[in-house]
Amino acid sequence: MIMDDISRQVANLPDHAPRGNPIITMKNVVVAYGDQVALWNINLDILEGEYLGIIGPNGSGKTTLFKVILGLKAMNNGSIQILGQSLHGDAGNLLKGASWKDKIAYVPQRFTIDRNFPARVWDIVRMGRAPSHKVFSRFTREDKEQVMRCLEVVGMENFSNRPIGHLSGGQQQKVLIAKALAKEPDILLLDEPTSALDFKIAQDLIDLLGRLHEKEKLTIIEINHNLRLLRDNCERLVILNKTIEWIGDPNDPKADEKINEIFFHQ
């Protein structure tokens, strides 16, 4: 049954998609908040260097899926294997088990930053580097160069000394992406990166992510409510509604049918 699922998913890959090794393997993952099931029987292989899009209604478990990958939410059942390390549903303390965290970067849903928050763009990106959360380590020259490089990648190098609260929404989002990149991750998780951005800035951001994916060979998993934006970059699309309803090429007309079915019950 499980093997069937996996082979079906691999078979659904479009021709241009990378056929690397699975970097994340989820098997029969079940997650519940109390007696509310958030994720039911998720079987998913995410391949190395792949750009995976996730779409689904509110409350369909998209963010919970990220929390499981990040080791913030314990599974009730099933197992997950990330970068060769595996974790089972009964492992209890996820925080201790999840040593892959250094290799996963996360850009959360947009949150408001206080206009006067005492941090410059530089400080925020530097938070992505390990010494900023390890008490007794120092910032090396390498750290600083990496921070500057990441700011250049997202085109914000001229803003490094600006207070973070003074930037516009799109600029803040780019800074947060730079912060995620500063970690030198293998996997980048983005939770609705374009929500609250106007369509032009959103398109710019999506283009930037596409370039990043090509240049840095990152594995990117993006949650977005905008199917058009997802189609720009994604090699595979997951339609999630507590469980995986459909997976395949985002340009497949079946994706539209399935989305209509889930969102509009047609």
């Binding site: 930053i113 938070m127 900023s132 959360h133 008490v135």
Partner: peptide, 22 residues
């Protein structure tokens, strides 16, 4: 001594948790 993790937490608790700060 703890100013850097504290600064991180004050910026965003969620991201600090992801970064492995208790």
């Amino acid at each position: 001594i703890l100013r850097r993790p504290l600064h991180y937490i004050m910026f965003s608790e969620e991201m600090a948790r992801v970064a492995g700060i208790p």
